[in-house]
């Protein structure tokens, strides 16, 4: 048979890209809710963190197909509300920003905007493989591959797509982090704004954010 097979060429990341990714490793810094040294503050923070972990207002940003898992998580079968998790309608009220699935660059802009409009302490739960490494869209030209290059992420829930049990597990992890004072990277984001902005501007073509970062 003389016909040439239609071979789909998979482009792998170049070495340069991989090195760049290693250099640009997302910054880590102390979370806002960390337990203080002072004994009095400790108690207050403990109580506050307890309240925070049991009262998670969830802004589920249904970016991708994973959004379908959220209703299941919240409704009768899995009943996330017993953990204090309930939906919030606007970023002003929300504590948790949940990115459900792949994130196109067009959507990224909105996600960043929403994230910036949330109030500290705020948490980001990245849902599904797509937010970790691009997942099945790893070679797409217009989805982002690693979410935490653009906004700080507290908890990843791996899987494509993760079942509600996994989501609940992820929330449990988030609650644990909150109680320990290790969650909530709003301050970190603000501190490293230049780094994040640089990354964001790389992918967002029609950049029209206000110059000043207003929460």
């Amino acid at each position: 048979m003389s016909e040439t097979k239609d071979i789909r060429i998979i482009t792998r990341p170049t070495k340069e890209q991989i090195r760049q990714a290693q250099i640009d490793f997302a910054p880590r810094c102390t979370a806002a809710g960390r337990v203080n040294d002072k004994e009095t503050q400790k108690m207050v923070q403990y109580i506050l963190n307890f309240a925070r972990k049991h009262s998670l207002f969830l802004l589920a940003y249904g970016t991708g197909c994973g959004a379908i898992e959220i209703p299941a998580t919240l409704t009768s079968r899995y009943d996330a509300e017993r953990l204090g998790i309930r939906g919030a309608a606007t970023p002003r009220q929300a504590d948790v920003l949940m990115i459900t699935g792949y994130l196109s660059t067009k959507t990224l802009k909105r996600v960043i905007r929403v994230y910036e409009q949330m109030q500290d302490p705020k948490y980001v739960v990245a849902f599904g493989s797509c937010t970790i490494n691009g997942g099945m869209y790893f070679d797409s030209y217009n989805t982002i591959k690693a979410l935490d290059r653009y906004i700080p992420v507290d908890v990843y829930i791996a899987g494509c797509m993760p079942r509600p049990e996994a989501v609940l597990k992820g929330f449990a992890k988030l609650q644990e982090l909150i109680q320990n004072g290790n969650a909530g990277n709003g301050e970190c984001y603000r501190k490293n704004l230049d780094w994040y902005r640089a990354n964001q501007q790389k992918v967002i073509k029609n950049w029209d954010f206000p110059d000043e970062y207003n929460w």
């Binding site: 309240a51 009943d79 509300e81 017993r82 204090g84 302490p121």
Partner: peptide
Amino acid sequence: NRVGPPVYQNFLDLLKLQGKTTNV
């Protein structure tokens, strides 16, 4: 047919909201 949040859930919500470190 859910378990639902604890009865004191609203207090937690309130505490959390008042404990927000930034406001606009």
